[in-house]
Design a protein around this nucleic acid. Structure first.
Length: 478
RNA sequence: CGGGGUGUGGCUCAGGUGGUAGAGCGCUUGGUUCGGGACCAAGAGGCCGCAAGUUCAAGUCUUGUCACUCCGACCA
């Protein structure tokens, strides 16, 4: 009984204090730890391993769609950053500046990249000359710095890790196609690799990226009903091209400005995994990004033959292509159970003298803790299906939570009340007036997360009652 | 940037009225254990965030400072 209590005490229960539950998981699952640098975290091996798997999944998709990786400098000269007006204004408040090299003051300060549009543009202006040079489909995996005031592990840190794709195209149509193709790619990645259902759509004028013509987003719903912007894809038109003079000679030898896009997914996605799938016992990881997919816990491992059998099992599982760990440390089995649950390992195999005698082992799935006994000779062929089912259950559960917590509301009072009482999103029509959007934010703290599409003619704006133009998903966000 | 909280072994904290530091967990070693966070024994580990000040004497009192953390305004 006291043991039970101890386990429960390990992390703050999710429904008691969501924020503390979240940080507890980050620390206890050894994903990250606070660093001496304010607002920055240290990615620990386990957290970094997840990030590596995420980058691997995404990078594979980028390569498949013809993108190339590059590396831009960490610094941006002030004059370069200032070339596109909207862009600077958007980022100015949160950039970090380098003013000195050694003891010498620099003639021009350098900003630590908050994002690299300007660097890519500067480079594109140099390397793009003719239509034959297009499209340029570049991406980079880097960290960027934004001087945030309040920070939280993964969700908002001053330095964070991400990929930023930057492409240049001959036509508007092509650039728009790229923008939407990436949006779909992100959506597919989140739903299959992370088992996180997302909504996708366009951002409103006030929520879009600084310098973009259109910003598209995928939004996920966390367990507490709040939204997490999980990825964005921007269409730039030729605004940047004009500011940076990125021109190419078309087939008729006429100079044209390129049309550009940019898009990114960050290490914030790890926060999403935690807040969508995690429970009171810790992390629950989707198999595709689980550093350890299968952990083998030997029971009474000092007894004759147990470790040998466990080793054989491990080798077989590894041979079959799974990421597997055999924990033969001298911890108690119960300690190990709790530890790997905390770390979200999808499947645990228990192997003890009893199992060995019967030629079987106990399989426990992390999401529902279901125990089944499987014959050792069948285990390898059973595992893929079990992982698959687990992934499916994770997605379905999250999807049920998402869809059941989107409320269709058409009346302002009901909107305020719903936002206040029910965690989740609200679908409500809007007239497109930024003042109405601002009023929603002022009063309910909810923002427009995305625009689903045009509103029905019969709809009127949730705030001002004038004819509505768009159907919008609203929610409080991280 | 505003408000609150906290700084004492790796972690969580205890140390009325000032007298030179303690517990639990963790760690190390040895032994017994092993199907839901084991037990016994012996160890290692701290200029008490930092800096001034008061004092014969400061985790303890004063002032300042820094850091972290939580809650609000801005943001992936």
């Amino acid at each position: 009984m006291s043991k039970k209590q101890k386990m429960v005490e390990a992390i703050t229960p999710r429904d008691e204090d969501f924020t503390r539950w979240y940080t507890d998981i980050c620390m206890r699952a050894e994903l990250c730890s606070y660093s001496t640098v304010r607002g920055c975290v240290i990615l620990r091996p386990y957290g970094y391993a997840i990030w590596e798997l995420i980058t691997g999944e995404l990078d594979r998709r980028f390569k498949k769609t013809g993108h190339e990786n590059v590396m831009m400098p960490l610094f941006i000269p002030e004059s370069l950053l200032q070339k596109e007006k909207d862009h600077v204004e958007g980022f100015a408040p949160e950039v970090a500046w380098v003013t000195h090299g050694g003891d010498e003051e620099l003639t021009e300060r350098l900003c630590v990249r908050p994002t690299s549009e300007t660097l890519f543009c500067d480079h594109y202006a140099e390397v793009i000359e003719s239509w034959r040079d297009l499209p340029k489909l570049y991406n980079q995996w880097v960290s960027v710095v934004r001087w945030e005031k309040t920070t939280r592990p993964f969700l908002r840190t001053r330095e964070f890790f991400w990929q930023e794709g930057h492409t240049a195209h001959a036509t508007k149509e092509e650039a728009m196609e790229e923008t939407l193709m990436i949006l779909n790619l992100y959506e597919e990645f989140y739903q299959t690799a992370l088992a996180i259902p997302v909504l996708s759509g366009e951002k409103s004028e006030s929520e879009k990226f600084a310098g973009a013509v259109n910003t598209y987003t995928i939004e996920a719903m966390m367990h507490d009903g709040k939204a997490l912007q999980a990825g964005t894809s921007h269409y730039f038109g030729n605004g940047f091209a004009k500011a940076f003079n990125i021109q190419y000679a078309d087939r008729d030898n006429r100079l044209q400005y390129v049309h550009q896009t940019s898009w990114g997914v960050s290490s914030r996605s790890i926060g999403g995994i935690i807040m969508v799938h995690g429970d009171d016992d810790g992390l629950v990881l989707p198999p595709a990004v689980a550093p350890i997919q299968i952990v083998i816990i030997p029971i009474a491992q000092h007894k004759e033959g147990v470790l040998d059998e466990a080793c054989r099992l491990k080798e077989a599982v590894k041979e079959a292509g799974f990421r597997v760990k055999l924990d033969d440390s001298d911890r108690m089995p119960g300690w190990k159970f709790a530890e790997y649950e905390m770390k979200g390992v999808p499947i645990r195999l228990e192997l003890g003298p009893r199992d060995i005698a019967q030629g079987s082992c106990v399989v426990v799935t992390r999401d529902n803790r279901e125990k089944t006994v499987v014959q050792l000779e069948n285990i390898i062929e059973e595992l893929p299906g079990m992982l698959n089912d687990l992934n499916k259950r994770m997605f379905e559960n999250a999807n049920k939570r998402l869809t059941s917590r989107i409320y269709d509301v058409s009346d302002w009072n009901e909107f305020v009340q719903t936002m206040d009482e029910k965690p989740g999103f609200i679908r409500a029509p809007w007239c497109k007036d930024p003042d109405c959007e601002a009023k929603v934010k002022d009063i309910t703290k909810a923002t427009s997360r995305l625009i689903e599409g045009a509103a029905d003619k019969s709809h009127s704006c949730i705030v001002c009652n004038r004819p509505a133009l768009q159907m919008v998903i609203w929610g409080r966000a991280y």
